[in-house]
Design a protein around this nucleic acid. Structure first.
Lengths: 195, 195
DNA sequence: GGCATTATATAACGATCGTTACAAATTGGG
DNA sequence: CCCAATTTGTAACGATCGTTATATAATGCC
């Protein structure tokens, strides 16, 4: 059992609030004041619970991956490459314009001004994007083996294309593009996909 | 004729230096210190010549449009829609990875953390991106009239798709994607284009 | 009921942000 | 040659940045 004065706020709930702010304003655009206001706590509580701003961001990023990127794995689990990519693109259009969340994708919008001191953050987001692209690529490679994607298809190039389109869709969403507009982008992109 | 002590630096050259910094670090990621260091001048000279940080950014943005977006108009002037879009996508791949400049596109990377106070900047970049998308859309509409694009083609959707791909390519370039990788993205995107 | 332990709120730290007084320096006009 | 005009470098402004001392409040253990 814990000894000492008990924490007066829910850590998970506070983390969700922090994620929402980082998502909306980017890492550098978010101040400790913004965070403490949104989380309903004072700076010392934030530092005691999450280390510092950078640590808090990483934890928010982790939570983001769990709660808002899960549709990617679901999509890639579909039986064929085309179904998987279609679900990924359509799911991105929907997720990026979900009115319950800030528009766009944290992995793209969080970059903020990557002035030297935020390079670690920028790198972390970049790594996460590359990990997603890799999971798409692996799925397409498997599809070539399983036969639902032509043997002469370039899995790496197709995966990069799909990742590029979703990242572009994030820029569009942050600029105010509607869900139906992004869905049309997804359908158009699908025309470049074999099969 | 000008009366008073003459300016000791070249305004255009200084603006180019400022553009390079904004391009590399984004608006909010760039400090006045960064700017004065790169421009080789002191703060009062910067403020006398360009107003303030925001004014300087707008002037840098204008210069960016003149010097680094001209390939877009050239591409759209080609005889057919397919040639125009192909040149636009391939030209983007090349421009975004030109080693003489920061990787990526100022209109995408400059967003920085759009904390309230930078909303005007964010809006300006958004407007510029939309203007480009519109010029693509107009070009495709003309192509439908001229007959080199099918009458049932959706000019707005295609234009948005092309704009989305170029914006995604900017994210990829900023993350270190190579020129040949982006060229393959361009070729893949072209497969979604009619004709 | 003290005691160790932990979280709280207030208030401040040094650093940096964008911006500007101020005075010295350099020009053309009379 | 003095004056008005403009730029220059230095140095500082108040505000905010991320972070942390400090003291008080609230808990479980003995």
């Amino acid at each position: 059992m814990a000894i000492g004065r008990p924490r007066s706020f829910c850590k998970e709930h506070a983390l969700d609030r922090a994620l929402e702010v980082f998502w909306r304003k980017g890492y550098e655009g978010t101040s400790i004041s913004d965070l403490t206001a949104a989380m309903g706590i004072n700076p010392p509580s934030l530092y005691a619970a999450f280390g510092n701003k950078e640590g808090l961001f990483y934890q928010a990023l982790e939570r983001y991956a769990e709660t808002h990127e899960s549709f990617i794995r679901d999509a890639l689990a579909l039986p064929t490459a085309r179904e998987a990519v279609a679900a990924l693109l359509r799911g991105s259009a929907d997720a990026l314009t979900d009115k319950k969340n800030p528009a766009g994708c944290l992995l793209v919008q969080g970059i903020a001004g990557a002035g030297e001191h935020a390079k670690c953050i920028s790198d972390a987001l970049c790594e996460q994007r590359k990990a997603i692209e890799k999971s798409i690529r692996e799925r397409l490679k498997r599809a070539k083996i399983e036969g639902d994607l032509p043997k002469d298809a370039d899995a790496a190039a197709l995966a990069r294309f799909v990742a590029t389109v979703t990242q572009g869709m994030s820029v569009q969403a942050a600029a105010g593009a509607s869900r139906s507009e992004l869905r049309r982008v997804a359908e158009t992109a699908l025309r470049a996909f074999p099969g």
